[in-house]
Simulated scan of single mutants.
Amino acid sequence: MKIVRIILAIIVLALSAYLLITENFEFMPYLMLISGAIMLVRGLAELQKDRKGFGGYMFIIVSLFVFFVSIKGFLMN
């Protein structure tokens, strides 16, 4: 899980740097989709560590919302 989280974080950093430098926000739904994937992986990692607290569930709920917004962004283009 840690390797997947690191790879996704590097992709998000590279994509966000590209968006800021070029000021072309065409790839924003992709950035949000990958950010949602990071939150989902983090939430699942929290639940696997037997931390049944509020944090793991909150990460999963927020990632589902980000997935919804990202899909809506794909459909509007």
Rank of each mutant, 00 (worst) to 15 (best):
K52M: 14
F65N: 08
T22E: 13
F65I: 15
F27M: 10
K72A: 12
E46G: 03
L75D: 07
M58W: 12
Y30M: 11
N77K: 09
I61D: 00
L20F: 15
P29G: 09
F25H: 10
Y57H: 07
G43P: 06
I21Q: 12
L44M: 13
M58L: 15
N24F: 07
M28K: 09
M1A: 09
Q48N: 12
S63P: 06
I60M: 15
M39V: 02
L64D: 00
M39C: 10
L15D: 06
L19H: 05
I61Q: 03
E26Y: 12
K49G: 15
A37Q: 02
I10Q: 03
M1N: 04
G43L: 08
A14M: 06
A14N: 08
S70G: 14
I21C: 05
F25T: 05
F25Y: 15
A17R: 01
I11H: 01
I7Y: 12
G53D: 15
R42F: 00
S35Q: 07
I61R: 01
R51C: 01
M32Y: 03
V66D: 03
F74P: 00
P29L: 00
G53I: 07
L15I: 10
F74L: 13
I71S: 15
I7K: 06
I21P: 04
I6H: 05
F27C: 01
R51A: 09
A45V: 00
M1Y: 06
V4K: 09
F27Q: 09
R51I: 03
L44Q: 12
L40S: 13
L19W: 02
G73D: 04
F59S: 07
I34V: 14
F65T: 12
Q48C: 07
S16C: 03
G55N: 06
L75C: 03
I10W: 08
S70W: 10
L31R: 05
L40R: 07
V62A: 07
L31W: 09
A14R: 00
S70D: 11
Y30R: 00
M76F: 11
G36Y: 01
E46I: 14
I60W: 06
L33E: 02
V69R: 14
S63T: 04
G73Q: 04
S35F: 09
L8C: 12
V66E: 05
F65L: 15
I61K: 01
V69T: 11
E23M: 07
T22W: 02
M32F: 08
L33I: 11
L8N: 09
M76G: 03
A45S: 06
F67C: 14
V66K: 05
K52P: 01
I6D: 12
G73K: 02
T22D: 14
I11G: 04
K2Y: 15
